[in-house]
Design a protein around this nucleic acid. Structure first.
Lengths: 252, 252
DNA sequence: GCTTGACATTGACGCAACGTAAACCTTTAC
DNA sequence: GTAAAGGTTTACGTTGCGTCAATGTCAAGC
């Protein structure tokens, strides 16, 4: 009573290629080989295969699986050893995750990389046409001028502040706030105050930004993926835009 | 101003083979190649190399590193994507770890292997002298007698129950509980009730274990590494011992 | 000028566990 | 009879280098 390679593979949820591989490395031999070279597996082979796949799912390598199945090694010991290295791997990943997270934070915080990107969005003529089309020539010129006038340090600072505000915006959006509600309007006010305090920007230095500039900026947050990402994606950015627009209509 | 491949490798903390590999795959080209074919790297190449190694330490693959360094991809986006898969990998490991742990528990609970280990501790004369020296002749005799009287199935059950209780003990210890506090004392009570319910043990069958046996068992959890491991190491076992001792003093 | 030792070069194999053709034969179904 | 489905073996691709192997080059000492 035996079955073809394809049949056994489907039964066990694997592929015929894998079975042939296991045969090649001596992990699981067919119970019978036909005169035509076809491999056939019986129920014992199937049982062994199922144990193999179970151990494989636990993350054991082929030599380890062979060791366990052939009883050369103490089963519990092998698994405990494996568990040990699984834990080490996990620790390694934890450290890497922490490193990547802090790296991203540093970048966001202003250490050149992100600033370079921002520069792409403002300074580089690469997007000039696109920006002009979206927000008009004057807006582009204004946006570009004040950004270009800033020193690298100021740009970093600008990005940092942008990030700080962004986290509050994201929190408000996530909390299901109304863009025209108190919380969102308070944030819009802070945002406006900040922009208004930046010399060189339209309205900058007077304490309140130019209305068109403020509204246009909100639109840009949504339209430009690189900005939208800062505000938790398109939805978050749309929330910010709506709040900014409402604020501008009332107070600017 | 440039340096040999070996020199740069040492400066950056890698190997010349790696540098040649990076050259082959187009990740880092030497700044100059001598008439003899020797590779030379200048300060710019070194800077790039250092960024490469940093990204490598974050776990990025060569194509991803190239993408980031050549600015083809958004830096933050690339890192966020990488972060995503790091987290997935970690989740996968977590699941595997859990699977391996329960597999080991099952084996311990019913499939003889761990029982054999336990048997080492109790049944085998290998540790007889040591045990006698630690807990006295009578204690060893008692411990050995009831253990030896159990059937294999009972032994397995005992180990499983032991494991079940252990996880609660570990959790309590990890939570910073007081050994004499409510939580720990409740656990000690469960532990005592369980031991007291096992016929053949000192006090077993009466519902409450013998005081000396109970206290001695707690000591053993600490003294014997094989038991201590079950309770999260020496510290965890000491927590259990203290709780058991306090409970015995009050109620046994 | 020669030897020696350290350092360079370019291949090319090895690893883990199969996926994925390529080229070709068998069995099954219509 | 022929085509579809399934089988075979052979062998390359994957990831990031480690590790020979065979050989050329350079600075230093005799």
């Amino acid at each position: 009573m035996d079955w073809s390679i394809q049949h056994i593979a489907r039964l066990a949820g694997t592929t015929s290629r894998t079975l042939r591989h296991y045969g090649d490395v001596g992990l699981l031999q067919p119970s019978r080989i036909g005169g035509n070279g076809y491999r056939y597996y019986d129920e014992h082979a199937l049982a062994r295969l199922q144990r193999i796949l179970m151990l494989r799912d636990l993350g054991l390598g082929i030599p380890a699986i062979a060791g366990v199945l052939d009883g050369q090694r103490d089963n519990a010991e092998a698994l405990l050893g494996h568990l040990h290295w699984l834990r080490e791997e996990k620790n390694r990943l934890d450290r890497q995750i922490a490193s990547v997270e802090t790296t991203i934070l540093k970048m966001e915080g202003g250490e050149q990389l992100m600033a370079e990107e921002m520069l792409d969005g403002f300074d580089n003529t690469q997007y000039k046409d696109e920006v002009e089309e979206r927000w008009g020539k004057q807006a582009y010129a204004d946006g570009n001028r004040w950004w270009a006038a800033m020193t690298a340090g100021e740009k970093d600072e600008w990005m940092l502040r942008q990030k700080q505000l962004a986290s509050d915006w994201i929190a408000a959006a996530a909390a299901g706030e109304d863009p025209t509600g108190q919380v969102a309007q308070a944030l819009a006010k802070r945002h406006a105050n900040w922009l208004g305090s930046i010399p060189g920007t339209p309205g900058g230095g007077t304490g309140t930004p130019a209305k068109a500039y403020f509204v246009g900026l909100g639109e840009m947050y949504v339209a430009d993926d690189r900005f939208a990402a800062n505000y938790g994606g398109t939805d978050g950015a749309a929330f910010v835009r709506d709040a900014m627009k409402a604020y501008a209509e009332k107070y600017l």
